[in-house]
Nucleic acid binder design. Structure first.
Lengths: 160, 160
DNA sequence: TATTGTTATACTCTATAACTATA
DNA sequence: TATAGTTATAGAGTATAACAATA
C-alpha cells in the first residue's frame, strides 16, 4: 500500500474534487452576491424565459419551497420578475429582467475563467474527453441534462 | 439554443453528477449504518492504522470537532478504538478493530458494485481515462490524493 | 505560545407538513 | 382529487469559540 487507497475509488475522487470545485465556484460568484443555484436559475431563464417555478425546480433539482426564496431574492434585486403564467393561473412565469441578463453574462464569464484555471493542465482534446465522459455517465445514471419538454426519447444527443 | 446551456459547463456537470453519486453512495452504505465519511475513516485506517484524529481530519477534509463525533460512534460500535499515542500524549491513536476491518471490506465491496453500475456504460479504457483525468485535475488543484507523510514531491504518481 | 481533543453554542440548510388558489 | 406557490416548524448539519491537557 504505497498510495492512498481511498482515492482510487472514482466515487471518492469525484466527491473530493467536486467539493473543491463548488467551493471555488461559490467564491468566484460571491462578489456578484450570487449563489451557484441563483446563477443556475438565471442561466436557465437565459435559455428559455418565462418558465414556472416548478419547471425551474425540476431543472435545478431543488425543492419548490427553496425555489420561493431564490426567486424572492432575485426579484427584490430586480434581476427577475414574476408575471402571470399564460395558461395556468396557479403558476408564476419567471422572467429575466435586463439587469439579470447582464449579471448572468458577467457570472458566466467568471465561471469560464474559473474553468480555464481548473482545466488548465489539460489540452483541448483532454477537456473534450473529460466532459464527454462525464456527460455519458450522467446520462446513463438517468440525469436530465437536457430538460426541455418534448424530448422524451431518442433526442439528437449532441456530442455523444 | 437547442440543448441546455447550463450543463455545458464542466463545473455544473460535475456538480450535478457528484450530487447524484454521493446520494447513491449514501444509500448503498445505509444498510451497514455507515456514513460515507465513516467509511472513509475506516478505509484510511486500513491503509495505516493508529493515526491521530488530527491526521485523519486532514486526510478526510473535515474539522476536528466533527472527527470527535465520527470516532465516538465507531468506538461505541466497537469498530475502532482510541489508544494512547506513542510520542504525543495529547493525541489519540485511532486503531481499527477486527469488526471494523470486516465492515470496511463489506462496504468496499458494495462501493465496487455501485461503481460498476455507475460506470457500466464505459469500457475499461474509458474508465481508466476518466479516473486519470479526474486525478490530474485534482492534483493540479492542489488536492492531496496521497496524504502519506514523506511523499512531499516527486511521488511515483501511479497512472499519470 | 501552539496544538490535540473536547464541548457548547449559534447559525445555516434542509425536510416535512400544512395552507391557498387554482386545475 | 391533484398541483403551483407559499409559509412555518423542526431537524440535521456546520462553523465558531472556548476550555483542559500537553507540546
Amino acid at each position: 500500500m504505497t498510495s492512498q487507497p481511498l482515492f482510487h475509488h472514482p466515487v471518492c475522487l469525484l466527491g473530493r474534487l467536486d467539493f473543491h470545485v463548488q467551493e471555488q465556484f461559490t467564491k468566484v460568484l460571491a462578489p456578484l452576491h450570487l449563489q451557484p443555484r441563483q446563477f443556475g436559475l438565471l442561466s436557465l431563464l437565459t435559455g428559455s424565459d418565462g418558465q414556472s417555478q416548478q419547471q425551474l425546480c425540476e431543472s435545478l433539482d431543488v425543492h419548490r419551497n427553496v425555489m420561493v426564496g431564490l426567486v424572492d431574492e432575485l426579484e427584490q434585486r430586480e434581476l427577475v420578475e414574476r408575471r402571470r403564467h399564460p395558461g395556468d393561473r396557479r403558476a408564476h412565469a419567471v422572467h429575466l429582467l435586463p439587469a439579470g441578463r447582464a449579471l448572468q453574462a458577467q457570472a458566466e464569464q467568471l465561471l469560464d475563467e474559473l474553468e480555464s484555471e481548473l482545466l488548465g493542465g489539460l489540452d483541448r482534446d483532454e477537456v473534450r474527453t473529460l466532459i464527454s465522459l462525464l456527460q455519458r455517465v450522467s446520462r446513463d445514471a438517468g440525469l436530465d441534462l437536457i430538460p426541455h419538454p418534448g424530448l422524451t426519447a431518442g433526442a439528437p444527443a449532441a456530442g455523444r
